[in-house]
Every structure is written in C-alpha cells, then in structure tokens.
Design a protein around this nucleic acid. Sequence first.
DNA 1: AGTGTATCCTGCAGGC
DNA 2: TGCCTGCAGGATACAC
Length: 279
Amino acid sequence: MPELPEAETIVRGLRTTIVGERIRRVEVLHTDILRQPKLIFSKRVRLRIINGIERRGKNVLLVLNEGWVIKVNLGMTGRLLPFSRPPRSAERPAHSAVRLRFLSGALLVFDDTRRFGSMEALTSAEWNERSNLMGPEPLGSTYQVSHLLDGLQRSSSPIRSWLLDQKRIAGVGNIYANEALYLADIHPQRQSRSVTKNEAKALYRSLRSVLRDAIKAGGTTIQDYRNTDGDKGEYAGQLSVYGREGKPCYRCNSGVQRIVFSNRSAFYCPSCQPRRRNK
DNA sequence: AGTGTATCCTGCAGGC
DNA sequence: TGCCTGCAGGATACAC
C-alpha cells in the first residue's frame, strides 16, 4: 500500500532515528518476508552500520557500510518501526516479521500484517542492477514532461496501468495514479499513446503536485499505513476521487465512478474524464 | 506486448 | 451475534 509519499515519509522518520546504529542481531519471525535464505541475509548485514536511508520508488533502502544495502519493499501493510529499547509485550507490533537489534539496545521492527512486503540484503552492485530496471523518479530534478510524453507514446496499455508499472515510472501506486489522472482530466483507461502533448503536460504537473502534497501531509492512511512513529498520514482528507465512488465530483457534481480493470479499482469522474476525448 | 486471472496473506466492513 | 462476501496502498507468474 505505501506508495512513494508513504515510503518518503518513512525514510525521513528513519533518518532521525536509526542512522549510525550497528546491527547486532537479526531475528526473522516470518521467513517468507526474506527474498533470500535467512542465514545469507543475516550474514550479509550482521555487525554492519546503518550509514544512511534512501528511497527508490516505493522501496526503502537501509544503506550499510562496506557497500551493503537492505532493500525493503513495504507491500500493502508493511511498517518500519524503530524503538529506542525493546518494547513491552503490550507495545510489541502484532505482526512483526523481522527485527534488527542494534548494539545500542535500540531496534528496528519490520511489521507486516499481510506479509506481501519483502526484505533483501544486496551488494551495491546488485542494487544498482535492480534500480536500473526501474523507471525514473517522478519527483527527481531531472524528470521532464518530455520523459513522460515519450514513455506514453510508446505504449498501448491503459494509462492507469502505465502509471502503476514500476519499470516505466517509479513509486506511483493506485491512489496517486487515480488522483493525478483526475486532476489532469484523463480517463484511467485511455490508451497511453492517445494522450496529447498538452495532456501529458497536465499529467506531469498533477502527478508531481499530488505526490508532493501527499508527502507534506505525511502520506495517505486508508486503513493500515503508519509512519515510523505509528501515526497515520493525513492526505486521505485531500483525495479527490480515490475511494469516493458515488460521491459528487468536486468540480462538476457528477457521481464518481468505480470500475475494475487489471484487477484493481479505478475511480474517476465520467464527465471531467471522458473515455474518449471530445474533438 | 498487453491483459485478465490468480496468488501470496490478514482483517475489516457491510449485508443478511 | 455469526456467517458470508467483497474489498484493500503491491508484485509477480501464468496462459492467451
């Protein structure tokens, strides 16, 4: 569930807490979270120092010394919860999957109700290979309208699917894809290559503003998302269409519609976002 | 190449 | 109260 703004909020929270910690011990409570054998993972990270925290798309990266990286994908319900000391049983996260215990006595818990998330220890070379397979960062300083337009023109898939494809653009998930398309007046099922230059420009702007505003609000909590303090994100109050099926469009009062394609709900205003462009 | 479907899992809300 | 269904922010594999 966490998309780019939620991952960014978590990264910022971790930067103020666990940077500088040395990993003393790894506890794996749910092996299915790890993308590699437990012993490999723990051998790769044990006794290493967390030098920094980065984000790439929806992934949180714990950058260790000696060229190692822990890649964390939060899936739908993943949380990264730092504790300055081991929590009492009442405060212990209910679905802890992996615990990194630090030399200082502090610890980081990866908690994940549905266990769709993952953790993997990689060399920086391995990580770079993965990162190179991913699309550009939509909030990156080098990202231009032309990149978006070029990408869209080469694809016949529905534009919502294009936006969700991490190989094409990194970090966009179902909430912000729907919100950005609404603000740009583009129907989620429009063929990507049918999007005009002006529409691409509008989408570029709406995508960046939605993502930036959501970061300012600390992300969107529908049900499960929590930041590193265990708090909810406040962007849900600013959503225009996501989850608003049947409710009036804020611009024209038409009822917001929900359709399902590629196994995921899409929300849009049938009047502001026509299936086929008029003219 | 793209799409629909299924899968991994748990929990919640709504209908009856 | 309980049971059932559908739904959920993601990623991936499969058949077509």
